[in-house]
Design a protein around this nucleic acid. Structure first.
Lengths: 196, 196
DNA sequence: TGTACATCAGTGAACGCGCGTTCACTGATGTAC
DNA sequence: TGTACATCAGTGAACGCGCGTTCACTGATGTAC
């Protein structure tokens, strides 16, 4: 064993992390392996010691978000929350100014949908897993005041609302609309967590 | 005038139409000028008689959707509708099975956000115009039962919900989720058009 | 009415560039003795 | 403890390919006489 066993794993994680941030900003196709490796402090050639192909990296990047994402950290750092408090906090963080201004930590659900859809199976699976995690947070909260099927449907609508709000805000060129789309989505999402 | 004056305009429209459909399916970067021109029944070289660059074509494609989109046709073909009927019909068409199965006519709001954001100014403006058109339909309906500022905020949330629902449905790899995300978003959107 | 001409939409070969991938290599590290 | 060795993560040059773009050309059409 010429290198300690964690060495390769740590390098790999550095590549995935660099890739995730670059993908979030520019999408899959516009980011080259050169750029990713340079951002990770390495050179082109070494890439294929860690990944079969560029495609393989996509799924790893989406998955890595689910495991290291800032929402999770924000929600788990304080005192333990009830399901309802957790759901409310997720809405606030997800659509809030701090995350919107920090593109590196944007959620792949709205940062990468087109790229994921075109990149094939395993990125799509990672993407779907992430969506389900978010749905589960809302569903847990809603189960308190409605039967399971309704809670599930409303949780799906809530995820659509949060993702759609961020997506539109991120893509429009109108600064006023960027703010009001997120605020309108946030208010509506909070209302839907309480209602009936 | 060697050719009738409409000749060039018609060819241009054919190119834009071919591009719009290909972009909807594969995004900007993955579609080549060769493919677009071939789909329009032309060859590579002629492209630059119609557009300065590939970038110029993006905005034209997004704009063309706003002008020829199937929602508009569906909404305007029948007898005249009240604002409220129009909004309900838009929700149904937008999230319905017919459009979901017809990728050529998917809405750029969810088919192209990443590509638009990266492609720069004029596609972003066309994208924002399209979002505003959709907001206006909902806002018109909501004005009947609430003050203007609330109607505007709710209209923005409704657009986020519709776009987000389609986006997630289009990107997930789970067929059941594809259906239920759209249905949950549709039901919730209709409820939000009625409520309070 | 018929012919020569001018225009310009469309053609297709060619260019240069960047990218994903491959490969022979280097050199840092842990192990065997 | 010190030295030779084996391993393999990382290097960087090279490859082949596809793409956006350019350009000299063709040929269909309307116009002038």
């Amino acid at each position: 064993m010429p290198y300690p066993p964690e060495h390769k794993a740590r390098t790999r994680a550095r590549i995935v992390e660099a890739a995730r941030k670059l993908f979030n900003r520019y999408g899959f196709e516009l980011v080259s392996i050169d750029q990713i490796m340079a951002a990770a402090g390495l050179t082109r050639g070494g890439f294929y010691h860690h990944f079969d192909s560029k495609d393989t990296l996509y799924a790893a990047a989406v998955t890595s978000f689910a495991e290291t994402n800032p929402y999770r950290r924000a929600l788990e750092s304080g005192p333990p929350l009830t399901p309802r408090e957790m759901a409310r906090a997720l809405v606030d963080v997800y659509l809030g100014d701090a995350v919107f201004g920090d593109i590196d930590n944007h959620c792949p659900l709205y940062a990468l949908p087109g790229d994921v859809a075109r990149a094939g199976q395993s990125p799509q699976r990672a993407y779907t897993d992430l969506a389900r995690r978010m749905m589960a947070v809302y569903e847990n909260a809603l189960r308190e005041n409605m039967p399971a099927p309704q809670a599930q449907a409303r949780a799906q609508a809530l995820v659509s609302l949060c993702v759609g709000g961020m997506l539109l805000a991120r893509t429009t060129d109108d600064p006023a609309l960027r703010g009001s789309l997120r605020e309108a989505s946030r208010q509506q999402a909070l209302a839907l967590l309480e209602a009936r």
